[in-house]
Amino acid sequence: MKGAQRVASYYVLPSLVFVLLFSLYPIFESFRLSFYRLILALPWLGQRFVGWENYGDLVTDPVAMQSLGTTLLFVAVTAPLEVVLGLSMALVLNESFRGRALLRAIVLVPWAIPTVVSSQMWRFIFNDRYGLINFFLFGEATHLYLAPLAEPDLAVLAIMTADIWKTSSFAALIILAGLQTIPDELYEAASIDGASAWQKFHHITLPLLKPALLLALLFRTIDALRVFDLVFVMTQGGPADATNVLQFYGYKKTFAEGMIGYGSAIAVVVFFLSLVLSLLYIRLLGARILERSER
C-alpha cells in the first residue's frame, strides 16, 4: 500500500513537527551544551568546548551530590508508599458498596488539583504559627510549635507528605484497573475450597496484580524523579539545600544563574536516571498495549 504509506506520513507530520522542535531537538541540544562552558552572565567568554569538565564539576560539587541523594531518597520513600496506599484504596474501591462511584470520584480530587495549589495548601498546613499540623501535635501550646519548612529533615518530610497525598490516587487508579481484570470465578472457586481472605489476597490478587503494581511503581518513580513544583512553592530548595532536588537545582543553575553548560549537565543526568526507568516502563506498558492491537 504505497498510498497508505503516503497518507499515513501526511497525517503524522504535524505532530512530528512539534515533537521534533520542542522535544527531540532540545534533548540533543542539552547533550551538546553539557560539553560546553556557556555562562549568560559572562557573555564575553563565549561558548567554549570543555569536554567532560561540567560532569567533572558535578561530581565534586557537594550541593549537586547532596541534591542527587535527596532526589533518590525522595523517590525511594514516596514511590513505594504511594503504591501501598494506592493498593489499599484500590482494594476498597473494587468492593461493591453504596456510593462507590462517588467515592471513586472523590479519590480523584487530589490528582485533579494543580500541584501548585496543593503545594500552597500544604505550606499553609505546615505553617509555623497557625498550621493544622502544629495544632494537632501540640494543641494550644504555641511555644512548642515547629517550623517544619525551616528545618532540613522536617522539610524533606513535608514535601514527601504533600507528594504522597497528591499522587497516591493515581497509583490507585492504575491498580484498580488491574484489579478489575481479575475474574470473579477465581475468588469463588477459592471460597469453595475454603480459602481465607488473606489466602485469596496472597495467592490470587497479588500474583495477578503484579503487572499493574509494577506499572504504578515505575510510573510513580519516574514522576517523583522530576519533582519540582512542590519544592519551588514550599521550600525553594531550602533550608540549607535540604530539599534541593535535581530538577530544582538544574533549574536554578540554568535559569537563575545562567550557567547553561553546567545546568545542561545536570539535565542530562536527570534524563539518564529517568531513561533507564522509562525503558523498563515502556517495555511493560508497550507490550501490553501492542498485544491488544495485534488481532
Partner: peptide
Amino acid sequence: ALTRFRLSWTRFYLMLLLAISMFPQIAIAG
C-alpha cells in the same frame, strides 16, 4: 494513521511518544 495503517514505523513512533512523555522537564527546558 498510527492505528489504521500498520507500517513499520508507526509502532516505533508510538514508543517514541511514550518515551518523550517521560522526559524530565529540565532535560529540554533550556
